[in-house]
Design a binder for these strands. Sequence first.
RNA 1: GGACAGGUGGGUGAGUGGUUAAUACCAACAGACUGUAAAUCUGUCGCCCCUUGGGGCUACGGAGGUUCGAAUCCUCCCCUGUCCA
Length: 350
Amino acid sequence: MPVGTRATVKAIAQEDLEGLGAEIILANTYHLYLRPGHELIRELGGLHRFAAWPHPMLTDSGGFQVFSLGALNKIEEVGVTFRSHLDGSQHQLTPELAIEVQMALGADIIMAFDDCTPYPATTEQARASLERTERWAERSRAEWEGKGRGGQALFGIVQGGMYPELRREAAERQVERGLPGYAIGGVSVGEPRELSYAAVAAAVARLPRDKPRYLMGVGTPEELVAYAGMGIDMMDCVLPTRNARNGLLFTSQGAVAIKNARHARDPGPLDPDCGCRVCRRYSRAYLRHLYQSGEILASQLNTHHNLFHYLDTMRQVRHAIGLGQFGPWRAKRTYNRSTQTEWLSPFSAT
RNA sequence: GGACAGGUGGGUGAGUGGUUAAUACCAACAGACUGUAAAUCUGUCGCCCCUUGGGGCUACGGAGGUUCGAAUCCUCCCCUGUCCA
C-alpha cells in the first residue's frame, strides 16, 4: 500500500496510481486532523471524494506519530497530548478521538489507536506498551461500535516489542476482540532485521488466516517477500516514495543511487528488466541529471518507478502463491536457515 | 587622465596582527532513509604522508617590506567596478 499521509501519495497523481495498479492507499489521522481538519473532509463527502480516490483507503490512527513525534508529545493513560508540529498548538489525541476522526474521514479500514513500542525497550517497557495498546484498543473498539461502525473495518494492532512471547500474547488478546482484521505494529523502528522477523513470525502465527494480517510500516522489497512468505497479507511503507525523492531507486539488480556520478554518462535504462514507463523511456544519465538539477520531474519519475517495482514485486508474489509455489508452508521451511536470497527463491523459480 | 571602492579556497562571500587550512551558503562527492515534521538529513570537501591522533608542504591578485608572528599593517605594480573629466 503506497503511503499518502496527507491524502496524497507524494509526487504522483491518483490517476497514475490507478495506472500502476495500486489497489489501496493510506492516509493519516493525525496529519489530516491538523490540516485541513476531519470536519472539513466530512463536509466535502469524506476522504475518497475529497482526494478523488474511489478505491479502498486505510487511515492510520496517529499511533505512529506518538512514536515519531515523541519530542512533541506526552503520553498519558487518557491519550497523548501533542504540540502541533505545524503551529505549536496543543491537541489531545485519545482512542475515542482517533476513531471519531477516522470515521469522519471515512476510510474503508481504520486503525485502533496504539502505543508504538520503541526500540530498544526492556521487557517491562514492552509489556507496559502492550497493555496500554490493549486498553486503547478496547476503547477504540467501543467507540467504533458505539458509533455504528460506519461501514468501516477496524483493525487491532499487535505490539510487544522484540519479545516473541509478548507478541504471541498480544496477538491472542487482539484476536479475542473479533475485529475485521489485525495489524502488527512496532516493527522497523531501528532494530536488527532478525529481531523483526522473529517478532513478526511469532505474532502472525497467532492471527487468523481468514482475516487480513497487516504488517505496518514495512519494508524493503526483500522484506515484503519474506513477510508475505510468513503469511502477511498487507504492508505499507514510505520507503519507495521517500527514497524515490531522495534518489534511491529499487531495481531487479538491487538499489541504485541514481545521484551517483557513475550514472552521468549512462545511456541505458535504470532497470532493463523493468517494464515501467520510466525504464522504457528514460536513461540513467537523464534521471541523474533531473535529480542533480533538483527538477520536480525527478521526484515524479523516481516515485513512479519505485512504486511500480514494489507493486510488481507483490504481483509476482501473488502469482507465485496462485501457482502454489509460494506460501507460508514454503517460507517457513526456508526461514530458519535463511538469507534474504533464499526468501526470494520461491518466486524467482517461476 | 582623476576620485573612490574592491581583488580570499570550484562559485558567492565572512574574516582586518596570533585562538585561521581560513565562518557561512552554494556547487561537487559519498552515505542514510522502513505505520512520512523528509523534494529531507549527515559526512567529506588545498596537496602529500604516518593514518586514533597527528606530521610536512603550499595558500587569501603579484613583488618587496614591518613584526617573534601577516589574509589582516606599509610600499610599488597588475587587475576589476562605480563616478568625474
